[in-house]
């Protein structure tokens, strides 16, 4: 089967291929979910050196537990759940929290960034200041275009909590962006 064709396979066909020992099938599964896993690991784990370890562990767990996947959710949601829990376990071991300010908070570069007057750059900097859980939820909703329900399934948070965290995160971003632009006008 050609590589191109494999990217159009359904979750069930992909799982069957991987379980049948087709490593290309498993590679395809990795490629299909890499973006989502990078989104979760990249936002929750601040230490770049830990990200590779975690990503490898995630797919090792996926490989080992693939037989037990019951197709009750999308395959990507299940992989996302594993990635999210792997990140939480790592943070717990390091006694870090996803609710506080990021471990490596972005330096106060606002003045320098203002010179660039690029909203995207400013926004990325402000986003990096939010607690990791907010960053992750913003990434999953606005980047990956997942529904509240899918995000709730990945994170294990109630749907209402996901909505409320997303509301607070957007409000915080809006307020900080407005205050930066007001400061610039003064």
């Amino acid at each position: 089967m050609s590589q191109q064709l494999k990217h159009t396979l359904t979750d069930r066909q992909l799982v069957d291929l991987a379980l049948g020992g087709d490593m290309h099938g498993f590679c395809c599964l990795v490629e299909n979910t890499e973006r989502l896993v990078a989104q979760i690991v990249g936002k929750l784990i601040q230490a770049e050196e830990d990200r590779k370890d975690i990503a490898q562990d995630v797919y090792l767990k996926v490989f080992r537990n693939l037989k037990g996947f019951k197709f009750q959710s999308k395959l990507s949601t299940w992989v996302g759940q594993i990635a999210y829990n792997a990140c939480l376990n790592r943070l717990q071991k390091q006694q870090l929290t996803i609710y506080g300010p990021p471990e490596r908070a972005a330096e106060d570069e606002t003045d320098r960034l203002l010179l660039q007057k690029e909203l995207k750059v400013l926004l990325a900097a402000e986003l990096a200041r939010l607690p990791p859980i907010y960053q992750t939820l913003i990434g999953l909703y606005h980047h990956e275009e997942l529904s509240y329900l899918e995000i709730a399934a990945i994170t294990g948070l109630p749907e209402g909590t996901v909505k409320s965290y997303l509301f607070r995160a957007r409000k915080q971003l809006k307020d900080s962006m407005l205050s930066i632009y007001k400061k610039e006008k003064l």
Partner: peptide
């Protein structure tokens, strides 16, 4: 703007690593 931000990506070949 949030939708247009660059998506995070791994700086290594994930498939090879896995």
């Amino acid at each position: 703007e949030l939708a247009g931000l660059a998506a995070p990506a791994f700086d290594f070949d994930l498939v090879a690593a896995v």
